[in-house]
């Protein structure tokens, strides 16, 4: 347990000191800033489409850190050192995912407060947006780490990562943006269910990818 905490703290430290923390957040806020320029000062239109744009921005922002999630640790022999010490790949993947939720997810939730203000999202929808993103973030982190483990060391890994992650994240996007619609129906429940399933599978998928990548 103490060792899990040590590893998690290292993930946090790398995210803070490596500069990887700010890039996705700045990207997310840039989209929220630019979108009103394109639509013009049309408040009803922004209120209607703004939530969906924030969801797309969050999804694309989650692509940016993929390249630095696994690759540096594999190249430096860090993952091998953990394996020698008897750490299973699934536990390592779980720590990576938890670290990614904390280092990327929480700042993104805070940024979405600013983003929704920039884009003029109606106040009554703010809670739904934050709740939806909060439920989707573990799944996005799990997908990110899995794909990072799959593509680490390949040529054009970041482009490939985008190609792999976006299709897998489409259900999250549909249900997440759907929960902000006029008649959301069961979108939020479906979002939670999808996210739970993805989050539960991802440590095993990422662990298998880590194992396969070790030679």
């Amino acid at each position: 347990m103490k060792n899990l905490f040590l590893l998690l703290r290292r993930e946090m430290r790398i995210a803070w000191t490596g500069g990887g923390l700010w890039l996705p957040i700045i990207f997310f806020l840039t989209v929220a800033t630019l979108f009103p320029f394109v639509t013009g000062p049309d408040k009803p239109l922004l209120a209607k489409t703004g939530g969906g744009v924030l969801w797309i921005a969050a999804l694309l922002a989650s692509l940016l850190p993929i390249e630095r999630l696994i690759l540096p640790d594999r190249e430096d022999g860090f993952l091998d050192q953990l394996a020698i010490r008897g750490w299973s790949d699934e536990w390592v993947a779980l720590v990576k995912i938890a670290g990614h939720i904390l280092a990327f997810g929480i700042p993104l939730l805070l940024a979405s407060l600013i983003g929704s203000a920039l884009i003029g999202l109606p106040e009554e929808k703010l809670g739904t947006l934050l709740l939806g993103l909060a439920f989707a973030l573990p799944a996005l982190a799990g997908l990110g780490v899995t794909i990072a483990a799959l593509t680490a060391g390949l040529h054009g890994a970041s482009a490939l990562g985008g190609l792999l992650l976006v299709p897998l994240a489409i259900p999250l996007l549909i249900f997440g943006a759907g929960s902000l619609a006029e008649n959301p129906g069961n979108a939020m429940q479906l979002l939670i269910a999808t996210s739970l399933a993805m989050t539960a599978v991802s440590p095993f998928a990422a662990g298998a990818a880590l194992k396969a990548g070790r030679e």
Binding site: G77, F78, D80, Q81, I84, R85
Partner: peptide, 15 residues
């Protein structure tokens, strides 16, 4: 017994 491996990679955080 526990093992420790040193290869060409340092496996220490550069920062």
């Amino acid at each position: 017994g526990n093992m420790a491996l040193a290869d060409e990679r340092m496996a220490l955080d550069l920062s």
